[in-house]
């Protein structure tokens, strides 16, 4: 089972819709609330990052009885130093975004914390691809 989402980079209001939908689907599958929570938070953070830092992108979620895989891809500016970006508290978010409650530099660390596997590929000027997986078994 795969789910596909286009994430609109222009609209803060709709940011979070994809992760909300994934949550609904996982509930329909009877997945445990703890796993749903981890997937939803990881997906939400990834989705918000694409909106704030990359002007939107696409998300694909593949669900099998063994695991849930999320791939988020954008053609934004890319991340020059991934290790630095992964550090808690590191953020390049602009001031206006802070007012909305984002920009604490906790998104990527949380994505790592809540998933069993996470990979980032990024090329400056080309875009970023984040892969995350949560095991069900």
């Amino acid at each position: 089972m795969t789910l596909h989402y286009d994430i609109d980079g222009e609209n803060f209001q709709t940011a979070g819709e994809a992760s909300a939908n994934v949550k609904k689907v996982l509930r329909q599958l009877g997945i445990s609330t703890d796993i749903i929570r981890r997937v939803a938070i990881a997906m939400y953070e990834g989705e918000i990052n694409m909106v704030i830092h990359a002007n939107g992108g696409v998300a694909d979620v593949a669900i099998t009885p063994d695991r849930i895989e999320m791939t988020l891809e954008d053609s934004g500016n890319g991340i020059p130093d991934i290790a630095l970006a992964m550090q808690e508290g590191y953020s390049t978010a602009p001031e206006n975004v802070h007012e909305l409650g984002f920009g604490a530099g906790m998104g990527l660390p949380n994505m790592k914390k809540y998933t069993d596997e996470m990979k980032i590929e990024s090329t400056v000027g080309v875009g970023t691809k984040v892969f995350m997986a949560v095991n069900l078994k």
């Binding site: 089972m1 509930r27 329909q28 599958l29 009877g30 997945i31 669900i63 099998t64 009885p65």
Partner: peptide, 10 residues
Amino acid sequence: KLDDDMDQAL
């Protein structure tokens, strides 16, 4: 929940 069995639900 769509089904008690996850394969069926999928």
